[in-house]
């Protein structure tokens, strides 16, 4: 979806070169600090499942964060609980780090001017950078969910999954729904990535870009919880993120999902084009 938005709006001289994208992905997934970040992401489902195994909730229900009371009944809930725990901070932070680094990081290291001295169109470079961010958003979400499924099924077993509506579906369909949740959240996080890409073109300090993105994300979570500002809520970046629960109803409530995807698509469209306007005209001196 993110790629579609770009190819529809940006003039693209040649299709995205696979080699360029591959080297960009190697840069993201090969860095040791990113490995550490992904280890933190994967640690959460492990902690959640082990803690629930050692000290299972006493029943009663309704205690702890969302999905927690259901964890012992089905391993898939470990993945869902981990996703909802990491959604407010860890996942956006991971994407913000990568996105903030994308342009500003190269400028900071002084490699940007070398990168631009090779005959690569700036638009194409931006497309590759954003594609890599989107791929990272998918990878991060699937990493959390995958670790959760693994730990959950090992410790608590699989079996039929109870949806929010109280109906049961098979384990296979449950996996499919979980995958849909991951896709939805990855698109939402790609919107964070688009904002990050834009902020990253404004500065040469990657850490500054990352902090700016996090202030925006956490700030919109705070605004989203102030009832007096309810007129503002539908326009906030994070407002529709928790709609992923609509995929766990019977039947699926597509209204919330499509609203969330449209909102994320709007953010991506605006901020990727803004990044393009800024970056393709920027003087690169470092």
């Amino acid at each position: 979806m993110a790629d579609l938005a770009i190819s529809a709006t940006l003039p693209k001289p040649r299709p995205v070169s696979g080699r360029f994208l591959a080297s960009e992905l190697l840069l993201i997934f090969g860095r040791r600090r990113n490995w550490a970040g992904m280890a933190v992401l994967a640690a959460m489902p492990v902690i959640v499942s082990v803690a629930n195994k050692i000290d299972p909730p006493t029943g009663g229900g309704g205690e702890g964060p969302d999905f927690f009371s259901a964890i012992t009944s089905n391993g898939l809930f470990v993945a869902l609980a981990a996703l909802s725990i990491e959604l407010p901070l860890f996942l956006p932070l991971a994407v913000a780090t990568i996105a903030g680094d994308s342009i500003a990081g190269e400028a900071n290291l002084g490699t940007l001017r070398y990168l631009l001295s090779v005959p690569v169109h700036r638009t194409r470079m931006l497309v590759v950078k954003f594609t890599a961010i989107v791929i990272f958003a998918f990878a991060a979400t699937l990493l959390v969910a995958g670790t959760g499924v693994l730990m959950g099924t090992v410790l608590f077993g699989g079996g039929d999954l109870t949806l929010l509506s109280g109906t049961q579906i098979s384990f296979g369909e449950g996996l499919l729904r979980l995958f849909a949740v991951c896709v939805y959240l990855a698109v939402c996080l790609s919107a964070v990535g688009a904002i990050g890409l834009f902020v990253s073109t404004l500065t040469e300090q990657p850490i500054g870009a990352t902090i700016a993105i996090m202030i925006l994300t956490v700030g919109s979570f705070i605004l989203d919880n102030i009832p007096q500002l309810d007129w503002l809520h539908p326009y906030l970046l994070v407002h529709n993120w928790l709609n992923f629960g609509d995929l766990l109803r019977d039947p699926v409530a597509w209204d919330g999902i499509s609203t969330g995807l449209l909102s994320a698509g709007a953010y991506i469209l605006v901020f990727v084009t803004a990044a393009w306007a800024r970056f393709s005209a920027r003087d690169v001196t470092s």
Partner: peptide, 9 residues
């Protein structure tokens, strides 16, 4: 160039 993001908005 800023016309494009403006148009997007």
């Amino acid at each position: 160039r800023w016309l494009l993001p403006a148009a997007a908005v």
